[in-house]
Each structure stands twice: as structure tokens, then as C-alpha cells.
């Protein structure tokens, strides 16, 4: 949550209060990488026995990772193949945005196809969710 908040705040504030000095780039990149690794730790620590929840968390995390340097590298790789001599290839930024939209749609689709917690359908499917009174 912190990474999009930080980058969004910087981008929105830049036209008003000015931009960061060039020397701040490596610090910003290091901060982004640290937050991405923290996101990876969250994924690894999350319980994976409920597949639908894990898939939705993963999709939300992919959108989180794509904001910033990961998305820029991905765009540079893909669009750079189409325009080899450009400093920034036309179209850069579109791919990551489309993947983010896809992540949102994916979360909604998984939610639509997942039975509500506590419903008889889910209880029949997922034995771990049952309350054990014998």
C-alpha cells in the first residue's frame, strides 16, 4: 500500500511543489525495491490452503509490483522491441496499466465464482473450513 501511495503523492505534488533532484532517483529505486521485497514476504507468509483467497491476494500483489520500476522495465522490454531507437518507446505505460485492469477483473471474477464463506457449498468443498463438532 505504501509504494503506490508514496509514488502517487510524489507525482501529484510534483507540478505544485517541484520535482526531486536527480540524485534522489537511486534512493527512490532502493525504497521501491525494499517495498517490493516486503510484498513478496507478505505473499510467502500468507496461508495458501484457501486457493481462491491466495489467488486474489496474488493478483492484488501483481498490481502493486507493477507500479514503479517493475512496470517501467516491462514496458521498456516490450515496447522497446517495437521502436528500437527511441529513448522511451511509444506506448510505454500502457501494458502495465492493462495488466492492472486485468488484475482487478481477475479478482472480481474469482470472487464471483467463489462460494461465500460459511455457505453449505463451501463447507462441502473445503473440509478445513468446517467447524469440528463431533
Amino acid at each position: 500500500m505504501l509504494k503506490p501511495l508514496l509514488l502517487g503523492g510524489l507525482v501529484l505534488a510534483a507540478p505544485v511543489v517541484g520535482v526531486l533532484p536527480r540524485g534522489a532517483s537511486p534512493v527512490l529505486l532502493a525504497g521501491e525495491i525494499t517495498l517490493d521485497i516486503a510484498g513478496l514476504a507478505v505473499m510467502l507468509a500468507a496461508p495458501s490452503h484457501r486457493l481462491a483467497d491466495y489467488q486474489r491476494l496474488l493478483l492484488a500483489m501483481v498490481a502493486f509490483w507493477l507500479v514503479g520500476w517493475v512496470g517501467q522495465v516491462l514496458d521498456a522490454l516490450v515496447f522497446g522491441l517495437l521502436t528500437l531507437d527511441a529513448e522511451v518507446a511509444p506506448g510505454s505505460g500502457l501494458l502495465t496499466a492493462v495488466i492492472m485492469i486485468g488484475c482487478g477483473v481477475g479478482i472480481a471474477l474469482i470472487t464471483a465464482h467463489t462460494p461465500e464463506r460459511g455457505s453449505p457449498t463451501l463447507a462441502a468443498r473445503d473440509p478445513l473450513e468446517r467447524t469440528g463438532h463431533r
Binding site: 486474489r56 492484488a60 498490481a63 492492472m100 482487478g104 477483473v105 479478482i107 472480481a108
Partner: peptide, 10 residues
């Protein structure tokens, strides 16, 4: 969450 992520991407 899905709506916010998709709208953000949009």
C-alpha cells in the same frame, strides 16, 4: 479491491 485496482489501471 477489484474495482479500485481496475479503476486505478484505467
Amino acid at each position: 479491491a477489484a474495482a479500485l485496482v481496475a479503476l486505478g489501471g484505467l
